[in-house]
Design a binder for these strands. Structure first.
Length: 217
DNA sequence: ATATCGATTATCT
DNA sequence: GATAATCGATATG
């Protein structure tokens, strides 16, 4: 654990598949406060953990902004499969983004992971990101964006697309501890042009690790 | 503080 | 051949 880690995670229990076998809006809201875990095969290797503070729901074939809007392709096949699996895509020729599939097999729908609050393994995350951490405020830049969090966790399509996020055996999974998420807000989604006004972005209001600030109204 | 812009490639039309 | 669920750098108020 890095010397600037802010909060601790208690014992982390994996979420079950039923958690993801629901409407992506419900999954998105309830993912806030849960924990993303990366633990690779090396026994001496400390796990990377970080708490969800910002996600977006994508509604499958009825959502013009979703990658699944035009039907199943090789790229988006995971979204059409069973719930609880990682959909990783490559964007702008530069970045990876990570989603979890939702709803039953045959129904597309997913949640994009937009920002996390790092808990443990921050030194390795900084190394993966190519940044230096001099103080607590620098931790923000590790995981406050969908491309950044993938870089911090070493997530690529070749390595992680299709992996089971309900199983610690997969090395990348989602769990819960006793943390209770407070101050959930919704806004429109970021960076899209179609269906840009739907309020499907979920975040912890005031949390410094979200990708963009939200002004009070 | 906000705005604009270039990078770089898998994927689909 | 065009596009893209981003990021970091640079410019400007």
């Amino acid at each position: 654990m890095g010397k600037f880690a802010q909060s601790k995670a208690g014992a982390i229990r994996p979420l079950d598949r039923a958690f993801f076998n629901r409407d992506p809006r419900r999954v998105a809201r309830e993912l806030l406060g849960k924990v993303l875990v990366r633990k690779d095969e090396r026994p001496t290797h400390a796990p990377l953990t970080a708490r969800f503070v910002e996600v977006e729901a994508y509604l499958g074939e009825n959502d013009p902004a979703a990658h699944s809007a035009a039907g199943r392709t090789l790229r988006n096949a995971v979204l059409f499969g069973p719930p609880g699996y990682a959909y990783v895509y490559f964007i702008y020729g530069v970045h990876y983004c990570l989603n979890v599939s939702c709803e039953p097999d045959g129904t597309a729908g997913g949640v994009l992971f937009r920002a996390l609050e790092p808990l443990t393994g921050t030194e390795e995350m900084a190394k993966a990101r190519g940044v230096e951490i001099h103080g607590p405020k620098d931790l923000v830049s590790l995981t406050n964006g969908p491309g950044k969090l993938c870089e911090a966790f070493g997530i690529t399509r070749a390595r992680d697309n299709g992996c089971d996020l309900t199983s610690p055996a997969s090395g990348l999974w989602i769990g819960e501890d006793d943390y209770h998420a407070r101050g959930i807000r919704t806004t429109s989604r970021i960076g899209i042009t179609k269906a840009a006004d739907m309020p499907l972005r979920y975040l912890l209001y005031g949390n410094p690790f979200v990708s963009r600030k939200v002004r009070p109204k």
